[in-house]
Write a protein that binds this DNA or RNA. Sequence first.
DNA 1: AATTGTGAATTGATTCACAGCT
DNA 2: AGCTGTGAATCAATTCACAATT
Lengths: 208, 208
Amino acid sequence: MEKLAIPRKAVYRLSLYLRCLQKLRNNEVETVSSEALAKAVGVKPTQLRKDLGYVGQFGTRGLGYSVETLFEAIHGVMGRTSLQPVVLVGVGNLGSALLSYGGFRKEGFEIIAAFDKAPDEVKKRAARSGVPINDSRDLVKYIRNYQVKMAILTVPENAAQEVANVIVEAGVQAILNFSPAVLQVPDEVVINHVNLAVELESLSYFVD
Amino acid sequence: MEKLAIPRKAVYRLSLYLRCLQKLRNNEVETVSSEALAKAVGVKPTQLRKDLGYVGQFGTRGLGYSVETLFEAIHGVMGRTSLQPVVLVGVGNLGSALLSYGGFRKEGFEIIAAFDKAPDEVKKRAARSGVPINDSRDLVKYIRNYQVKMAILTVPENAAQEVANVIVEAGVQAILNFSPAVLQVPDEVVINHVNLAVELESLSYFVD
DNA sequence: AATTGTGAATTGATTCACAGCT
DNA sequence: AGCTGTGAATCAATTCACAATT
């Protein structure tokens, strides 16, 4: 599953640093210290430095990091250079909501197609997104054809495992799973879980 | 910030257990062992038992837990009994996507109103959701009026801190923040962070 | 016989503290 | 003088192991 020995949480934060560096780069900032960058991201400077340690050594002591160099370095490890194609499976409420949310594209991901068991029913709902809605029967063929490596899962809980089996078999290596189902997948497949209801519910414990 | 001494992650998992127990209850299952419940949720039995330990003692040794009793217990600690009102601020792409996603209601949360700086522009986009879209100027008044304790933040990054200040001042105690901004809030306010782009990006590290 | 509840052990993540560069 | 890089120390979370209970 792991590509190198970078802990999962560190990978997550590296992605945070990358976003921030991009902004600095746009503002033509040349150098940044671990302290400044860490504050911008909401972590401690030591943690930032430790995380960067997983990637290599890029700083100059006494000075800080070159924004450009550091960006390139993290981007090189983390980031797909080109637009990464993603499929979305399950065009229900949440699925079509995510389709109409265009926010992934500018982060380097493109939802190139969506799939649903009953594509006609939902076609109009998601029509404005511009993403083609296909029948789930074509899922495997499509993933193989376009060599899609990543998928967003927004199917109902009871369908999630089956869909996961199918797409993994077809070659998907990473899944962003919005269903509450706990998915069984081979070790080399990674999953991130997002459960919006639980995010809210676990917050509500703290309100009085 | 913490209400009792239950660690944040344990609270999150308790919410997971609760969902699962609800399902068991619907299926009229009477008892469940830590092993079975843990598997359903995707954690180890010992962790489940340790988590339950934060809440109290409900099991009978040799037998397991009464689904009903355990449900009541966790629900009592975690759950608002009645529908918890929530406001959503920022009706852009993601905001309107979440509005049209109806999934929160059946989990005990109701988005009772949405707010935007330019409500007219976006009104039609989110019209079908049935949630009224108001002008941000009325935010404070509204939160006070209805004593809203929770908010979903889907404003652009540069507006996030300002909105946070305003809603916290008005009485909001918990925020589900979808913006990439790192928010400064008083200790007694809790925040959950969801960054969909980063979820995807941190996955992409593991694909080849 | 089965299964909980929990103190102790372990593992993992974070932070400290400071040596090493520039 | 300032700031990185990292081994050592600390802190938090998870898992083990087993006594207690039905």
